[in-house]
């Protein structure tokens, strides 16, 4: 395959960047999108140019490290996959492919296609956990009966890998799908109920502080999410927030 790549190049945080054009040849349709970028980077290094920086780790679609806004869509034109699981057969020979970083004030560009998703970590640190006593008398989690439906919904929410495609796809750069998945995976389970009120208040407060936009229910996040996280979670987070906001004594 012969392709024309238009890639966002930016030397560092706060620096001015621009789209650069790179022609590339000899790409196999069976390569993953990241392997195609590896080929480009090999070529750039051989030519003595700066390789394109992009995030990746497991390349199995489960770690949430890879990102990329490809031809106007988060993780590219395929559905239910991350960029590492996107294959070049989804493109045609001779295509022009735009490759951009996630765009959000809360996700500043570090270099080229790499953005700082530390905002998600700070939201998790604000409440995305359960406090468990590990001092030698830990209880077996299965000793508390949990309805199968609740366990399934919690599991579905927990499949969120925190890649940030929801923020990138949302016209408002809203993080509500991510935050709601993390609120839901714990709020649905008895172990998570204990801190549910404080959790939703703190996580939403941190989300607002980070400068994410507000959900306008366009549903773009749900469509582009590689893990198919449902909008039901956002409604659940709103319910949790209303309950907590009305009942909280602080």
């Amino acid at each position: 395959m012969k392709l024309t790549l238009k890639i966002w190049r930016q030397a560092g945080p706060g620096k001015a960047g621009k789209m650069e054009t790179y022609p590339i040849d000899g790409i196999s349709p069976d390569m993953s999108f990241l392997e195609m970028l590896d080929v480009l980077n090999n070529k750039l290094v051989t030519e003595g140019q700066e390789p394109v920086a992009f995030d990746h780790d497991c390349r199995e679609g489960i770690c949430g490290a890879c990102s990329l806004y490809i031809n106007g869509e988060a993780h590219g034109p395929d559905r239910g996959v991350t960029t590492c699981q996107l294959h070049m057969r989804k493109f045609k020979d001779g295509d022009t492919i735009y490759i951009e970083p996630w765009r959000a004030k809360a996700f500043p560009v570090i270099k080229d296609l790499v953005v700082d998703r530390g905002a998600f970590d700070r939201i998790m640190a604000a409440g995305g956990f359960v406090s468990v006593n590990t001092s030698g008398n830990t209880l077996d989690a299965n000793s508390i009966p949990i309805p199968k439906d609740d366990a399934d919904k919690a599991f579905d929410a927990a499949t969120c890998i925190g890649c940030g495609a929801c923020v990138a796809s949302c016209k408002n750069s809203s993080a509500m799908l991510f935050v709601s998945a993390k609120v839901s995976q714990l709020a649905l389970l008895p172990q998570g109920r204990v801190e549910a009120q404080r959790r939703v208040l703190n996580m939403v407060e941190q989300m607002d502080k980070e400068g994410f936009g507000n959900c306008t229910n366009t549903g773009a996040c749900e469509v582009e999410c590689p893990k198919g996280i449902s909008l039901e979670n956002i409604a659940r987070m709103n319910r949790e927030y209303i309950k907590a906001g009305l009942l909280s004594e602080s």
Binding site: E100, A104, S174, G213, N214
Partner: peptide, 30 residues
């Protein structure tokens, strides 16, 4: 107010964006 805040949340727009593939015109044009 929400519109202004939402605009501020994305200071840099995409060079190529295809919102019609994932959302309706009415939802994006409120």
């Amino acid at each position: 107010i929400l519109q202004i805040r939402n605009k501020q949340a994305r200071p840099q727009n995409y060079a190529m964006n295809k919102p019609a593939t994932n959302s309706s015109w009415s939802s994006r044009s409120m």
